[in-house]
Nucleic acid binder design. Structure first.
Lengths: 386, 386
DNA sequence: GCGCTTTCAGAAAGCGCTTTCTGGTAAGGT
DNA sequence: ACCTTACCAGAAAGCGCTTTCTGAAAGCGC
């Protein structure tokens, strides 16, 4: 029911005497003495194009054309319209415009897990910059990692007739969810909507900015092996996230190339706390400790670093630690974290560019691969006793 | 907004046969079995309420009412409409809705300097959470600190008929700018728009979430004096930002209470680099070094910390360092930064709540003061040689 | 059974724009 | 002078909804 959404407010439709709202009184009084009936209209109506046209002494159509410049309008008329618009402080009603013109409106939707997370904040920042350049407005949605919310947002964005929808962050490897998402996206695309994603699984048939998670993790593994490590653990995230799966697989591959088997994988939430907890678990577990730990995201790595410090484990002397993403903070912690660097802001710019570019041919989707660069910093070193 | 419109479910819904195509199928070629009549409509047109009404065999008005629940509709009709909407995959056109109904639409605008900055990301995160709870969509804009862009965004948000506009971060103390901003905001408010701000100057006549910058900085100063420091420097930001002015003034006050005069203020950009550069300048300058440095924001403090480290200045042994805001990262650096903690996420929730709450009486604006708590961490200690 | 009030579906009037379509006028051709 | 073209302003038809307003049908007391 709609009820939950609108709540009890559904009732009031008549503003009745309330028309003379406190704020409106002094400000609207200066108007001409209007017929009482006319008064019933919106309290503080917006300036409409109609008013501008009247003020300028031209027709509605001419006013529209003068302001939008779609067709030639005589210079003097154009001037009059512009002046009138300025005088009245006219601001076009974007909804009316969107409704009347076939032209898509100027908003794009951006759906991420959480803007508070530096990874998404970085990408979002890139999107914002690119959007600003093209005079686009961005509707940002944080799903807080609830799959259902993500779909609900796509739906809302569809309702807004957003020009493009950007999905940032792993999709969920869940059959039902994928189907539902697809059911939401397909009609959108068919109706001319653009969709582009960052970090989705490649099976999605949409334009994609795809970090080379697998290759990146593999080459990180190689670098760590080169430092002398043989005994690894991974602090992993929710396995249903494709990013996690890819990075884990890549890391395993990289180790396997040197004949090394990954001993231990500890799973945690995709957050700082998740990393912290996972690291604690790792330390608590008996047996020989690994000499090197790879957290699948920097955010988790930061949490893990804190946990290690608290436990008195020196990094990198006692244990090396590496992350993935290269969010800004990893350069500030001590020791600074070794990681696989992804150009976050740039990825944001790319994904919106991808979405806005002329559509790829029938059913074809473009994939922009982003290479991750291994950056060795202070958090990794030779294994203890070597 | 479709979910609320159709029913209680926020859960992914599986629509009729129109959406059952698996991922593998060619997107563009698929023919959905539709009624011939339905077919004659525009090729990729959206499903309209009209189509739903026809499918359900009721009038447009009834369909609207059935979906929105504004008026009682016979149960069987309501059911038919719901079914038809589901079958057709109907999604209301938010623009048409906004145009037709006096009810404001369900979007709010959020204007900040840069989502990439943890301070704003934190607040934005809070806003997002609150917005999600109320089924609101957030239009996020980053001004990248260009005053003109900020005004342009307000204008765009006005055009969108956003229900509320949230301004996060200092305004500019610039006469012309203030005037322009006011000219933009006043008609918006008069037309029923809501405005709420975080960290603006109190002279703005809008609902405000106001961190106690002055008091916070003063009590930080007191704490630092208590540690034994007598010789201070401040790494300050652009003086036209009210936040900077307040924190600086507060800090001075705090020192003055103990009869101490602030020796040096180095100005830098409001960024990590700004803090870094400012710190370098401070160190490069001749004369006795201060024993304690206060950076007006944590972001700058983090940059300063890096600069100090690079210069071989030990913190806090050689020099103490403090910031303001308590962004998440300051807990991760070493030493963790002393700062004045602000509940960022909460402030985000508050500011949107403030904006959405029933308007305050004629011209009155509410101010929600947020106290900052001094948190002493490892970056501050006794002055050297004491 | 007759007027009364309710209840609720449908017709229709917009909401504020864009965009045909129409038609008047000035310019150009013969 | 007469007829084309161009050019451009205005009238009007929507865009997809919500919300009156209107009236038919049903309920009810006497």
């Amino acid at each position: 029911m709609t009820a939950p959404a609108h709540g009890q407010e559904v009732v009031p439709k008549f503003r009745g005497p309330a028309t003379t709202a406190p704020l409106g009184v002094e400000l609207s009084e200066r108007e001409t003495p209007v017929h009482p009936e006319t008064r019933r209209r919106a309290p503080a109506a917006h300036v409409t194009l109609d008013a501008v046209a009247r003020e300028a002494g031209v027709s509605l159509a001419t006013a529209s054309r003068a302001l939008n410049g779609t067709t030639r309008v005589r210079d003097d008329l154009r001037g009059r319209v512009r002046a009138a618009a300025d005088l009245l402080g006219y601001i076009p009603n974007a909804h009316a415009q969107a409704l009347a013109s076939a032209e898509g409106n100027r908003t794009v939707g951006l759906i991420c897990h959480d803007v508070g997370d530096p990874y998404f904040a970085g990408i979002a920042s890139g999107v914002m910059r690119a959007a600003a350049e093209q005079d686009l407005l961005v509707m940002l949605a944080s799903t807080f990692r609830e799959p259902a919310r993500e779909i609900a947002y796509v739906s809302m964005l569809r309702a807004q007739r957003a020009r493009a929808i950007l999905l940032i962050g792993s999709g969920f490897q869940d059959r039902a969810w994928e189907r539902a998402m697809d059911a939401e996206l397909e009609p959108y695309v068919r109706a001319g909507g653009r969709v582009a994603v960052v970090s989705r699984h490649r099976s999605m048939r949409v334009d994609t900015v795809q970090p080379e998670n697998r290759a990146g993790a593999a080459s990180l593994a190689a670098s760590l092996v080169e430092l002398g490590h043989r005994d690894f653990a991974v602090l992993s995230g929710p396995p249903e996230l494709t990013t996690v799966a890819d990075r884990l697989a890549g890391f395993r591959e990289g180790l396997a190339a040197s004949g090394i088997t990954l001993r231990r994988v500890v799973r945690g939430a995709f957050t700082r706390e998740g990393g912290h907890t996972a690291a604690c678990q790792l330390l608590a577990a008996g047996g020989a400790r690994p000499t090197c730990v790879f957290a699948v995201t920097d955010v988790m790595a930061v949490g893990a670093l804190a946990a290690l410090r608290e436990a008195g484990v020196r990094v990198p002397e006692d244990m090396s630690l590496a992350g993935f993403d290269d969010i800004p903070v990893v350069r500030e912690v001590s020791p600074p974290l070794t990681t696989v660097a992804l150009p976050l802001t740039e990825m944001g710019e790319q994904v919106i560019a991808l979405a806005l570019r002329t559509p790829s041919g029938a059913g074809r989707s473009r994939v922009l691969r982003i290479e991750g660069n291994v950056v060795l910093r202070g958090s990794t070193g030779a294994p203890p006793g070597s």
